[in-house]
Every structure is written in C-alpha cells, then in structure tokens.
Amino acid sequence: MSEEKNNGRMSIIVRTIASSVFPFIVIFSFYIIMHGHLTPGGGFQGGSVAASAIVMLIAAYGYRKVDERVKENSLACIESIGAIIFVAVAFVGLFMAASFMYNFLVGSPFFGEIPHGGNTGILNSGGILPILNIAVGLKVMAGLSAVVAVMALSAGEKK
C-alpha cells in the first residue's frame, strides 16, 4: 500500500513548496533573532520559527529523509553549545566585571551604542543582548526540533 511506496513523503507539490519556503523561513528566523533587541522577537521566538522550518521538512519529506542529514544526538549537542554560550557570557560578567549576568558590553566600543528615544534601530547596540539572543536562538531551534524529531521517530517505529 501507500505506506511503503510513499515512505512518509507528502505529494510532490507540497514537497516543492516546502523546499522553496524553507530558506525564506530560515532567513526570517535569523532576522527575528538578530533584531530581537530592536523589533518584536528575540532568541526564543526566532528559534521556534526555525524549529518550525525543520518540522515542516520532517512533515513534507518524512522523518527518514531528515534523519539522514541531522541526527538527534547532534541536535542535542548543538543545544548544549547554545546553553554553554549563555552561561559562559553570564560567567564572563561575573569574573571580568561585577556580577553574574552583568551587561558588561554596554558602553564598550562595538556593541555599546546607546540609542535615545524613538529611532530606526541600531543593530550593534544592546551590549550582551544580541549574543544571548543568538545563544538562546540556537538552543531553542535545536531543542524543539529535536523534540519533534525524537517523538516522530518513536511514533514511526511502532507501526
């Protein structure tokens, strides 16, 4: 029956559209993550959007196809790396400056611009916030997609 033939793939139209939309979602999620301190969004929101992109691939191509390229263990490792970046930045605040989670980059040359009032947005402002955004985004993306992937794998095994 169709289970063997399709092997969990959707129809060709869905697959093509999923492929074409994929970079759009990915770049948009990067935009959300990077501009988290300027526009609505941030690490978590962007990460969940990126995870949704991976979920879309899982839905369109079936778990097997995605599993060939991304293993859930490596996703777990990426997640660890994101978390480690977060804690490490916090610890840099402790050891180099004043306290845990201290925003030590505000006022420093590169990330330190301080805007005033309503403006159009300065990307390199915000001190450590962009770094934390990226860390959380990495973490959430890897984590949520790992959850869905593992659950899909487990559900597929049973049948």
């Binding site: 999923a18 759009f24 959007v49 949704s52 879309m56 839905a59 079936g62 049948k159």
Partner: peptide, 20 residues
C-alpha cells in the same frame, strides 16, 4: 503566514495515513 501552512500539512499527513 509562513507557519499556518505547517499545521495544515501535518494534519493532512496524518489523514493520509502515512508514517511520519
């Protein structure tokens, strides 16, 4: 607009009876 599509596809996939 980007993500609503995914829900639809997921449910459609369930209805088709394929494995995930």
């Amino acid at each position: 607009a980007l993500l609503s599509f995914i829900t639809t596809v997921l449910i459609a996939k369930y209805l088709e009876g394929d494995k995930l």
